[in-house]
Design a protein around this nucleic acid. Structure first.
Lengths: 339, 339
DNA sequence: CTATGTTATGCAACCGGTTGCACGTCAAGA
DNA sequence: TCTTGACGTGCAACCGGTTGCATAACATAG
């Protein structure tokens, strides 16, 4: 009668109950409401459970309680360096509360995102969407079925945490103006990106303040390749400074400039956004810093608060940013560059 | 009698059954085994289900079938650029088969990894562990309860996909030897990392072939900071070339060298591993390329095969690597450097 | 010594599906 | 006409927990 428990399948509550000579209910309570039982009983059950290697079945519990202890996190592109720190922080925050997180990669595609959310929704308690590409209508639709928080997307009535690039971008414009620049181009990101809209607006505002000309050049997808691709457009504008939607784009632009023999920062100044590359570029990139990890942590924390029905309401948490001056900005050349 | 279905909760199979005047079983089969039913019946049920907005409950289904359509992926550090492409590819592969993936971040810590796996195990059909820091014993233990595949970890009897750096590393050594280097240091990674063990062995082997001296310098964690930290040790070795465990470490080393005024590659050559930075460093880094995305895809694919009980057995898939020569390698200086 | 409360535990229904088996019907073969 | 098999469907048990209510034991109050 040593070990009869060598089934392939894991021991269940019934097994533990039998071994302990009590009912299933008692075992259940030993785990969920121990103070409802005699201390010795609880101790004995836990001991036995541990001995036979019993682990409560998440799925079964979820079925009867409706709480699965899972949340979902959806991002546009795991491989975009903006997101890993965010994902990491969110995941660790969830972990602290014993939540498991589903990760979804929408591939910068709203259809894919919608599909993912639909698949997740029946098995999570709540969702966090980072830089969602979904329409406001779809987001509201999903928010109706499950607690939902947004990261870097601003929709009234839906709890959200935003990284406010405005301050940092305005600092950047001031910095460029102080160096003597009179014109700049903003290389934009995805149209549906809240961050992009906000940065573009901040660029316009800052440029106005400092009486600078601004040209918008569109790079649909934020990536190294996109950056390289828009270099001709940038040069055509005759501007002496560039502010890119993100560091990846900025990095691509730097490479593109180098390919054409345009010196950075001597002939043209470049500023990135997000500070995801650290000082890894050469010259090291002047950029607008943010703490995407903090956004991830805060977003998840907010979501967990909602799940514990701690009042959240129309939360709108804004995280500040600031300019990090490195070596890609300098005074403009005497005369505008000619390729 | 218009809509009585406005409960807060979603309609269940019983609701649909009642509305259709059939039994639960029939509704169930209409979704899972339609060809077992009359075509008209199926059609009617589907129509009604659709009308009342019925969606099968994932959790309940999982409870009775044991199939939740979920898999778990655990990595040591989401923010390490080696992993995002891997994660992304794995997630998309799972997605193609309508699987949802739990993501775990072990934080380079085996206890954390063990805890995560335990939490996942009751709600996934299978697990993929990338660069697992667990002991072989723990891995075998978990593999007993669920189909499990390893990525970059080589344990007999457990399906695994490995990125074989040996070929690339040996190429790198040959490249350095051809340039005239006589000595190099290998900056190692985590001791429990299979990749590290393999790279170290390849370095030794390659060095022996080319009659080079090799010194091992330890960097416990693969990171930019670690790289900077080991620079004094490297210089102390008087070696003229460095091969680092990964690109991040190599990048840190480059910065550290620059800080000390040691020119790369004129005074010392540096080779990285993984090629996660592209040509983003300056000088652009010579490195051993791999396709971590392919490893992620293949690993997940293998896991899904196991779940469909397609024979897998003791699979051991090895992906090759090759050297990418960029600009951090050059002939050694005439005389060894002095800091 | 009986009435009343507490406390620890068991019973059984329930969460929302799945599935083996039984049953009834209808058509083809004997 | 009776048998037999295929087909379509329902019954009820089951997956592994949770939980409202009942009950038994024991303590306290009247």
């Amino acid at each position: 009668m040593a070990d009869k428990s060598s089934d392939r399948s894991a021991p269940t509550m019934a097994d533990v109950a039998k071994a302990a000579g009590v009912s299933k209910s008692t075992v259940s309570r030993a785990f969920t409401q121990p103070n409802m039982l005699g201390v010795d009983t609880v101790e004995r059950i836990l001991e036995i459970a541990n001995r036979v290697g019993y682990v409560p079945n998440h799925t079964a519990r979820a079925l009867s309680t409706g709480r699965h202890g899972n949340v979902a996190l959806v991002v546009p592109d795991v491989a975009n360096p903006f997101f890993p720190p965010l994902i990491r922080a969110a995941q660790m925050e969830a972990d602290r509360s014993d939540f498991c997180v589903f990760l979804g990669n929408s591939d910068e595609n709203w259809r894919q995102e919608d599909k993912l959310v639909d698949r997740f929704v029946s098995q999570v308690e709540g969702l966090a969407l980072a830089a969602s590409r979904l329409s406001e209508e779809r987001i509201r639709h999903h928010a109706l079925k499950r607690p939902l928080v947004l990261i870097n997307r601003d929709i009234r009535g839906i709890p959200r945490v935003l990284i406010d690039s405005s301050t940092g971008v305005i600092d950047a414009i001031a910095h460029l103006a102080a160096l003597g620049h009179k014109s700049l181009v903003y290389v934009s990101g995805p149209a549906s990106s809240w961050a992009n809209q906000q940065r573009r607006a901040a660029v316009r505002a800052g440029a106005k303040t400092h009486h600078m000309d601004v040209t918008i050049v569109a790079a649909k997808v934020p990536s190294y390749e996109s950056g390289r691709a828009v270099v001709p457009d940038i040069l055509a504008s005759k501007a002496t400074a560039v502010l890119a939607f993100d560091d990846l784009t900025a990095q691509g632009i730097m490479t593109g400039m180098a390919d054409r023999g345009v010196a950075v920062p001597e002939q043209i100044s470049i500023v990135g956004c997000d500070d995801v590359l650290g000082a890894a570029t050469y010259p090291s990139l002047t950029t607008v810093s943010n703490r995407s990890d903090e956004a991830g942590r805060a977003g998840m924390s907010l979501l967990l608060d909602m799940l514990n029905s701690r009042a959240v309401g129309d939360a709108r948490l804004v995280l500040g940013t600031h300019l990090v001056v490195r070596n890609t900005t300098a005074p403009p050349p005497r005369k505008s560059i000619s390729s």
